[in-house]
Amino acid sequence: DNLVIALHSYEPSHDGDLGFEKGEQLRILEQSGEWWKAQSLTTGQEGFIPFNFVAKA
């Protein structure tokens, strides 16, 4: 599955970004460039995340 774990917390800075906490698990929905579309397994919310803040779970 496309699961990743957050290496750092991220505060959203643009509409459509997904904020998350360090250690949170996310499911990657789309990989494109440096911003990936993801869904939080904690909150169920979707949005874009910086790819370098996460690692394969």
Rank of each mutant, 00 (worst) to 15 (best):
D1N: 11
D1I: 11
N2T: 11
L3R: 06
V4P: 00
I5M: 06
I5E: 05
I5P: 00
A6Y: 02
A6R: 01
A6G: 05
A6C: 05
L7T: 08
L7Q: 06
H8P: 00
S9M: 06
S9G: 09
S9K: 13
Y10I: 04
Y10R: 08
E11R: 14
E11L: 13
E11W: 14
P12Q: 07
P12W: 06
S13H: 13
S13M: 15
H14C: 15
D15G: 09
D17T: 11
D17L: 13
L18E: 02
L18Y: 03
G19N: 04
G19F: 06
G19C: 08
G19R: 12
F20G: 00
F20H: 00
F20L: 05
K22H: 05
K22D: 03
G23D: 06
G23K: 00
E24V: 03
E24I: 01
E24D: 11
Q25R: 13
Q25V: 15
L26G: 01
I28C: 05
I28N: 00
I28P: 02
I28T: 02
L29N: 02
Q31T: 10
Q31E: 12
Q31G: 08
S32G: 12
S32R: 12
S32E: 12
G33M: 03
G33A: 05
E34W: 12
W35R: 14
W36K: 01
K37G: 01
K37M: 12
A38T: 02
A38K: 00
A38I: 07
S40H: 08
S40G: 01
S40A: 04
S40Y: 01
S40V: 03
T42W: 13
T42C: 09
T42D: 08
T43P: 00
G44I: 02
G44N: 08
Q45I: 10
F48S: 05
F48C: 12
I49H: 00
I49M: 01
P50M: 05
P50W: 08
P50I: 06
P50E: 03
F51G: 12
F51N: 09
F51D: 06
N52F: 09
N52L: 07
N52P: 04
F53K: 07
V54C: 07
V54N: 04
V54S: 00
A55H: 10
A55V: 14
A55C: 13
A55T: 14
K56H: 14
A57D: 11
A57F: 14
